[in-house]
Design a protein around this nucleic acid. Structure first.
Lengths: 208, 208
DNA sequence: GACATTTATCACCAGTCGGTGACATTGCAA
DNA sequence: TTGCAATGTCACCGACTGGTGATAAATGTC
């Protein structure tokens, strides 16, 4: 840690600076949302000049793409533990997807912000990132499903969309307000209750 | 661009101007979101000076409150036709609430924006408006419920929150992208499919 | 007619934004 | 050493924002 006590000018290291900028960008995004996602705020937080954002990333767009790639890799890691053991029924698959997504999203402020802002302000910046995310999610879902089929007479794609929609909205709103539509979402116990309701819901709707 | 001073300058009418500002504000909000919700943009659209926003509404905050009141009144009107005939079971109540909310929200871009932005950027401005909305919704819900009780062993508040969350998210995202999580939401037929799935979902989960 | 009040517009301020060119500093290689 | 490219900093531009005081124009009243 203190090998070099002198906090003199950091050694000049392009890669390190680029990484610092990337992390600063992710922090700004996670803590303040796309509202404050601009070259000035990011450079300020990274402690270097905004010019470097243009040099190393080609501007905000390039930085957004880098975040997207970063996020995709992280997401891949986070989804791995959800893959085993293989589910035996479609209902089981969807239950694991739902509860897993709830936990994953709840623990990741960056993804919350992307979800929140892609609905509010569909700018190219947001879409760059959300594309990476949903592409990974869809791939994982496809792989997990394998040959499992939903029960006869059940419109699984539509129900899936509704379930995922519910999760996203409740996590994002809950994180912001500690409550949604009268349901408290502050303590762990509150979230356990929501989790249970979600579980019941998924179990119920996927059994013809 | 700016046509010669209108042959006949509008008569000076404080109330009319205030109304024009209010409508301009609602339009800006509905079409461009809170991103562009500022004194400059609103005055520009209303075709008058931004100074009048301060004079007649005491600033943006006052204007937001006015919009909130306006919205509450409109919402009351929109909810009326949903109140009859009185539902006979809890499941029936929730089905009507869900489908009604879906249609209502889908037809109202202003409410969509409020939903979208209260998740993304919880500013006092947004909360002023969303407070008016959710207060009305809760009142209507309470009145409609009457003495209807959910089936035994069902965590109705939690399930309600999930259902409403699903509706909000799918309408807002669907309106913005014509799609959500792989489910197309462009044509009327697409929405009919989503509606049907929602109906099945509500029916299913509220029957113990 | 003249006058005061209301209504509306304008010019301007300080601040932030994204973006760019010129400059300073460092490290490496010949 | 000298020279050069890579790295980092700075000052500045035009455009936009929220906000305010002074001013112009219309209206109502005598």
């Amino acid at each position: 840690m203190t090998a070099k006590p002198a906090p003199e000018s950091r050694t000049r290291d392009r890669d390190a600076t680029a990484r610092a900028l990337l992390n600063a960008a992710k922090d700004v995004l996670a803590e303040e949302g796309f509202q404050s996602f601009g070259v000035n705020a990011i450079a300020r937080r990274a402690g270097c000049d905004k010019q470097l954002i243009y040099r190393y990333f080609g501007g905000l767009d390039g930085l957004a793409e880098a975040i997207g790639a970063d996020l995709a890799a992280e997401l891949t890691e986070l989804l791995k533990p959800l893959s085993t053991p293989a589910p035996r029924t479609y209902a089981e698959l969807m239950q694991r997807l739902a509860l897993g997504l709830l936990d994953l999203l709840r623990a990741n402020r960056l993804m919350q912000q992307i979800n929140a802002w892609e609905a509010a302000a569909p700018s190219p910046l947001v879409q760059t990132m959300s594309a990476a995310r949903s592409q990974r999610m869809a791939a994982w879902m496809h792989e997990m499903r394998g040959s499992l089929k939903p029960p006869e007479g059940v419109d699984a794609p539509a129900l899936n969309a509704l379930v995922i929609a519910a999760i996203q909205q409740i996590v994002v709103s809950g994180a912001a307000y500690g409550e949604f539509s009268g349901l408290p979402l502050k303590t762990e116990a509150h979230w356990a209750r929501a989790r249970e309701a979600l579980k019941v819901m998924v179990r119920t709707i996927y059994n013809a």
